[in-house]
Write a protein that binds this DNA or RNA. Structure first.
Lengths: 341, 341
DNA sequence: TTGAAAGCGCTAACAC
DNA sequence: GTGTTAGCGCTTTCAA
C-alpha cells in the first residue's frame, strides 16, 4: 500500500503538501502545477488513505453504526438504503449491527461502540427498549439517533407518522363497511405500539365505532406472535370482520393462522398491515398494506448525526413526507352481508 | 477516553507494562502485584483500547467484511450468525456489506476494502459473479473466501453440498410417486445453479426418469423470477406434477403464480425448495424445504480467513456436516391418480 | 506557496 | 520484571 510519503517522494514534494491536496482542504493554496504533479503521482501509485492513520490523527473514523433488531427483516431494506445513500454523500461508511448484539455487557457492544470505531450511532431498538440503557455511555460522547421508537420530538429521535399510518389503514377498513375491527399490536413496551394503537382508536372514534377490547392483542410484531394473536381473536364467538395488524410480519402470521382455522381472507376476514415488504406481495392472498417512509427516515437520520458530528446542536426529526400510503392488494374486501343461518 | 498512558500513570508503571498486561501477550513476565495494580487502574478508568491506534501500529483492524447479495434475505440469517459467533471467539468484529455495493469502481467498495478497514473478506457473489473481479486487487493482499459460489475445491472457496441437497429434494418427490418433475433454477452464470441442476439430473437418472427440457427454467432465485418460471412451466400442456425449486425465495414466487393460475398445491402440484427460512414456514401452503448448513459454512469460513490472516496457507472448505435435511411441510403430497375426463 | 516537525494511541524491540 | 523509545500514516500548526 502506497503511503503519503511514497506519493510525496514521487512528486518531489513534502508529505504535508500531498496531504493538503489529497484531502482537498478548502483553504489550500497550492500552485496548479504542484497540485497536478501530486495528483498524478497519487494516481500512478494507486494511493489510498489509510483509515487507521487518519482516524488516529483526526479522532474520527468516518463510520457510523446502524443497528436494527433483525438484519434480515425485509421492512428495513429501505431504511438501510436511505442511510447508506446519505452517508456516501459525506464520505461515510455504514457499519450494520443487530440490536441483540448490543445487550448491556455484550462484548460486541463494547467492540463496536467503545473503541472509537464509529463516530455516531443510529439505533432501532425494536422490542428491546432497554438497549437504550446499554448505549447510554456512548451517547454521552457521541451522537445517537433513536429510530422510530421513543416518543416523537424527544431530542435525538427520528420518528415516523405511526399514528397517521394506522389511521390510514383503519380508515380503509371502515370505508369497506367494517365495524367489528380487531387490532393486533406490538408489545406494550414498544413505544411504536402506543402510537399505532392510538391511531387505531382515534380513527374508530372518528367514525363513531366502538372498540371491543376483546378484539385487541399486544403480543408483538413477529409472525409467530401474529399467529397467537389471530388464534385468540378468531376463536372467540365475537369474531371481528376485519383486523388491522400493526406490523406486516405479524400479518403474515395472521394469514396463516386464519387459514388453519378455516377463516378465508378476504371473504370472511379483511386484513391490512402497517409497513410494506416483498413478503406482502407474495403472501396469499397478497396483503393490503400501508407503506411507511423508511427510506426518508434513514436519510434524514443520517443527516442529523452528520450535523451533530460536526458540532451542531441536536434536533428531533419527524418524517412526514411522503405520507403513509395505502397499497390495496387482495387481503381486504367490502364487508358482505352476514351469513344467515 | 482513557488512554494507555492514563492507566500507566494511575498504576505508577510504564505504558509498555500496561500494554503487555492488557493485551495479554502470552510471553509476558509481570509480577502478580503489578498486574493487579494495572488491571485495577484500567477498570477504574474504564479503559478501552483505541482501535485506530492499535490498527495503525499492528497493521490489523480486527474486522472482517461479510458481503452478501441481499442483507434482508432470510436465508442468510444463519450464515451471519455463524460468522459472527466464530469471529467473536477471536476478538474480531464483522462488518456487513451488500454485494451490489462492491461493483467494480464503486466508491463504497474502495472505502470498505481499500483503506485497511478490514483484514479479510467473506463474499457471497449471488447472481453477480463479476464482483469477484472487483475484489481481485484486494485478494492479492488480503485473504478472501468466496462463499458457496465458485466450483468446490477452488482455493479460497467454501462450498455447501448443493448437489446432495438437490438430490435430497428430488428424491422426496420421486418417493411420492412423481415422474414429471420440473426444475426451477438460478441464472446460468451462477455456479450454484450448475450444481443444483446436476443434482436434479442425477437423481432423476438414478430413478430411471427422463428430464423433460421444457420443464426446466433458469431465470433466477428471486420471487419474481420464480413467478416467471412457474408461469412458463404451468401454462404449457405438458404440465409437471411436481417442481423442485433451487431457492426458497423463488419458491415463494412459484406458489403465488400457481395460485393465480388455479393450480392447487399440493393437490395438483408438489413444490419443494432448497434452503429453509421463516418465510417457508409462513407461506401457504407451508413449504417443504431442504435445510442447508449455512451456520456451519459461516463458522468454517471465518476460521479459514482467521488462519490465513495469521499467515497459514489457504485451503478449500467443503461443509458437509450436517448433511442437507429435508423438512416436510405441506407443499408436497403423493401423486394422485390423474383426473379422468 | 511549500516544508519541517509534533503527536494522535499503541506495540515491540531493546536496554536495564 | 520493568522502562525507554521508535515508529505505524496521517493532519496541522508553525516557520520559512
Amino acid at each position: 500500500m502506497a503511503t503519503l510519503s511514497d506519493v510525496a517522494a514521487r512528486a518531489g514534494v513534502s508529505v504535508s503538501a500531498v496531504s493538503r491536496v489529497l484531502s482537498d482542504a478548502p483553504e489550500t493554496r497550492v500552485s496548479d502545477e504542484t497540485r497536478e504533479r501530486i495528483k498524478r503521482a497519487a494516481r500512478e501509485l494507486d494511493y489510498r488513505p489509510n483509515s487507521a492513520g487518519r482516524a488516529l490523527r483526526s479522532a474520527r473514523s468516518n463510520v457510523v453504526a446502524l443497528v436494527v433488531p433483525d438484519l434480515m427483516n425485509a421492512i428495513f431494506i429501505e431504511l438501510v438504503r436511505g442511510v447508506e445513500d446519505a452517508a456516501i454523500q459525506h464520505d461515510y461508511l455504514v457499519l450494520m449491527g443487530r440490536t441483540e448484539d448490543i445487550e448491556p455487557g455484550d462484548e460486541r457492544a463494547r467492540k463496536l461502540l467503545g473503541e472509537g470505531r464509529v463516530d455516531a450511532l443510529l439505533l432501532q431498538p425494536g422490542d428491546r427498549p432497554h438497549v437504550v440503557d446499554a448505549i447510554a455511555g456512548f451517547a454521552q460522547t457521541k451522537p445517537v439517533v433513536i429510530l422510530n421508537s421513543v416518543e416523537a420530538n424527544a431530542p435525538g429521535s427520528a420518528t415516523m407518522p405511526d399514528e397517521a399510518g394506522a389511521r390510514t389503514a383503519v380508515r380503509h377498513l371502515i370505508e369497506l363497511g367494517h365495524e367489528k375491527i380487531g387490532f393486533v399490536g406490538g408489545v406494550p413496551e414498544n413505544p411504536t405500539n402506543a402510537r399505532r394503537a392510538s391511531g387505531f382508536r382515534s380513527e374508530m372514534a372518528a367514525a363513531g365505532l366502538e372498540v371491543d377490547e376483546h378484539l385487541t392483542t399486544d403480543f408483538g410484531y413477529t409472525p409467530d406472535e401474529g399467529v397467537r394473536a389471530a388464534e385468540q381473536l378468531l376463536s372467540g364467538d365475537r369474531r371481528p370482520t376485519a383486523i388491522f395488524v400493526a406490523n406486516v410480519n405479524a400479518a403474515i402470521g395472521v394469514l396463516s393462522a386464519a387459514r388453519r382455522l378455516g377463516v378465508s381472507v378476504p371473504e370472511d376476514l379483511s386484513v391490512v398491515a402497517l409497513h410494506d415488504s416483498w413478503t406482502a406481495e407474495n403472501s396469499w392472498p397478497p396483503l393490503t398494506t400501508v407503506k411507511m417512509p423508511w427510506y426518508e427516515l434513514g436519510q434524514r437520520a443520517f443527516d442529523e448525526v452528520y450535523r451533530r458530528i460536526r458540532g451542531e446542536t441536536p434536533t428531533s426529526i419527524v418524517v412526514d413526507d411522503p405520507a403513509p400510503r395505502l397499497i390495496v392488494r387482495e387481503s381486504t374486501a367490502r364487508l358482505r352481508a352476514p351469513r344467515q343461518p
